[in-house]
């Protein structure tokens, strides 16, 4: 996969990241590198810290220790204070698209305005050009006919496709997905998976937290199993999903592939 650009340039670097909520240590020293154009999937039982790790990458959670880098630039900057850090993190976040389990579309804005709000406000893109960009993105996710509809009128699968388009509108360097299909009815999962698949084909760098073992195996370049705040095992997805080394991974997969 991706032989042309297989340059091993690190895009996301997670180095020895620790995070606690009160007395509960949720991340106990996580290391992970996602190279440019690669797709890494994170799996693991509920409460293992997958979301916390993903949210730490774009600083929705503030890590206690360690470093996170995006394309060589350090995301967490304990040395920066107040407005200086605000400016820094807002800039960093413009380069990272995030897709949430519950979509979090803006209900007071039409579909296209959801997508174009950030480019218009943050990149000062003229409304006409923003609309063209918005239509192009809606086309990409197969929802051009829904441009002027409000999110409440969309199905879950459509909402998530709009949410992906919204994240893409800022032309991010990486995309983060936190269980993008977990809140969907089973018959709507496929349409979202297809959009993610098409991003994979366009060499988008992606970090995916998922419960969809089949999808993770097919689409990823690398897979990681987390449990109790530590990385139990990471390797090529073919190996992780078929014959993992660790017993904990085996048990987890046995439970998940049966249900």
């Amino acid at each position: 996969m991706n032989t042309e650009r297989n340059k091993d340039e690190p895009m996301i670097e997670i180095r020895d990241v620790h995070k606690s909520f009160g007395d509960l240590e949720v991340l106990k020293g996580i290391n992970l590198t996602v190279n440019r154009g690669k797709i890494v999937s994170i799996i693991g039982p509920s409460g293992s810290g997958k979301s916390t790790l993903l949210r730490s990458v774009n600083h929705l959670e503030v890590i206690d220790q360690g470093n996170i880098l995006l394309d060589g630039v350090q995301v967490n900057r304990p040395d920066m204070k107040g407005l200086q850090f605000e400016r820094h993190i807002n800039h960093i976040r413009q380069n990272m698209g995030m897709v949430f389990q519950h979509f979090n579309l803006f209900p007071h804005l039409s579909t296209i305005d959801n997508i174009t709000l950030a480019p218009r406000k943050l990149k000062k893109m003229p409304p006409k050009i923003a609309r063209e960009l918005g239509m192009e993105l809606l086309n990409r996710v197969g929802l051009a006919s829904k441009a002027d509809v409000f999110p409440n009128w969309l199905s879950g699968g459509q909402k998530q496709r709009v949410a992906i388009a919204r994240a893409l509108a800022m032309e991010p360097k990486v995309m983060l997905f936190d269980e993008a299909t977990s809140a969907l009815d089973p018959e709507l999962v496929e349409e979202v998976n297809q959009v993610m698949q098409s991003l994979a084909e366009e060499q988008m760098t992606m970090l995916i937290v998922t419960h969809e073992m089949g999808f993770a195996r097919d689409v990823s370049d690398w897979a990681m199993f987390m449990d109790g705040g530590v990385v139990v095992e990471e390797c090529a997805p073919q190996k992780l999903f078929s014959n993992p080394d660790q017993e904990r991974t085996q048990n987890f997969l046995r439970k998940h592939l049966n249900s």
């Binding site: 774009n58 976040r93 979090n104």
Partner: peptide
């Protein structure tokens, strides 16, 4: 919903 703030901040809004 707090998800609204997170979505907005994750896009880079202050």
């Amino acid at each position: 919903d707090s998800g609204q703030v997170e979505a907005s901040r994750s896009l880079g809004f202050g």
